[in-house]
Design a protein around this nucleic acid. Structure first.
Lengths: 230, 230
DNA sequence: CCAATGCAAGAGCGGTGCTCTCTTTTTTGT
DNA sequence: ACAAAAAAGAGAGCACCGCTCTTGCATTGG
């Protein structure tokens, strides 16, 4: 059925992919703001209105690219993590963070698309959530493993944040001590702060030797979450 | 001279201010991407081409808004800091960070303009640097004060980062121990990571009770820089 | 007073996202 | 097998955008 579902269905898949590829090319070259449906259509030898048969609006095309970008960085992180799966939690954590930074430097416009300013009236549809969570899920898993191996020190947690921590644990950080759950979420946001500052030019004339600086900062964040120093 | 410099010069200043005000209004309402020279001109009752007598391009108008935004958040931070000038360094640090977050929540589009994705081919001109540095300078000052008061513990620093740290100290962190200088810069970027994640929607369904979460995270970052826990 | 300058206005260029209509092609149901 | 229905492409057109150029008018400084 699905194999020989007619030339039309197959063509649709191919054209959709071609549109996304060309759009991704333009995104990587010029950034999201300069991505133009007309230019994509032009490059593909079709007329601009034909493109609306595949993506109902520019925003929908952008959403597709956003999901792809999340998956791309997520896959980079997963690959990097797999390569050090047997190492210490600390080592696994830093490897994942460095993979994220490496991906960001290699795909700056895609990084800006997903971790920079959201486009004007745009709210990410629910479909992006699973892809968006991939990097975080790896880091959560690392901390969970460390906890089960007895290699996790729980950071202090003010009493007022206890309900929030319990909710986090129930929602996505099962098994972790409350203080670790909160520290973990904060450390993830803080790590992306380091990447964003570097990528968005805030480190100009401030941090020059950026790779070792990032390694050091990420390592300290991981220690702050309570990962054992090995 | 400057007082009675003719009606023309005065009019120019007023019109320039009116343009910036209306542009800021549109920026706050719809975001940078939807800021349109034509709409600004329309609202001011002039024709769009007339606007080019005041700002040579849309990017130049945006640059003016960027500088204003940096000054605005810088002033918020400075005001907040002045209110607790006699408190402990830790308290001063967290007050400044909370002021930044408060300003960001009140001016999301302006925050996105300066700390989000840079606009496409745009590189911030040197004129933005002094305004951009204001928040960081306050935090650096806090740590310097703590150091001079003997209330600063130097975080560890790998030998490889020592040259970088010395450069930072020479450039903008005079008097600080090397480990503190590096930790300080990282903590600033990490703090903005927390703000950006919240503002850009990355905390949806992840952090609900955001104000106390931020307070806690920022406090832990400050302790990580070595500020004494008082 | 008069020439030089500053400024507003208007027309216009090439670009954008998006809609609508029309034609052709493929799929589907009887 | 054939007609009806659905899908796809093409083209024209709308309203907007940033930006440029020319044309008149007002202000200014020598």
């Amino acid at each position: 059925m699905s194999t020989t579902q007619g030339a039309r269905a197959r063509a649709r898949i191919e054209v959709t992919a071609a549109i996304k590829d060309e759009a991704r090319r333009q995104l990587a070259a010029e950034g999201a703001a300069k991505l133009s449906l007309r230019a994509v259509a032009r490059e593909l030898g079709m007329v601009s209105s034909a493109l609306y048969r595949y993506f109902p609006s520019r925003d929908d095309l952008l959403t597709a690219l956003i999901i792809d970008a999340y998956d791309s960085v997520g896959e980079s992180a997963e690959t990097a993590h797999a390569k050090v799966a047997d190492a210490s939690p600390l080592r696994r954590w830093t490897s994942v963070c460095e993979a994220v930074r490496g991906w960001a430097l290699a795909h700056p416009h895609e990084y800006a698309l997903i971790y920079g300013s959201p486009v004007p009236g745009y709210v990410a549809p629910e479909t992006t959530v699973p892809s968006a969570a991939r990097v975080a899920l790896i880091l959560i898993g690392v901390v969970q493993d460390a906890h089960q191996a007895g290699a996790l020190t729980e950071p202090p947690l003010p009493a007022g944040l206890r309900p929030e921590a319990d909710r986090m644990i129930a929602d996505f950080a099962g098994g972790l001590p409350p203080g670790s759950a909160v520290a973990l979420v904060a450390a993830i946001a803080e790590t992306f702060g380091l990447v964003s500052f570097e990528l968005f030019g805030q480190f100009r004339r401030v941090v020059e030797d950026r790779e070792p600086f990032f390694r050091h900062a990420v390592r300290r964040l991981a220690l702050g979450v309570g990962l054992a120093d090995v």
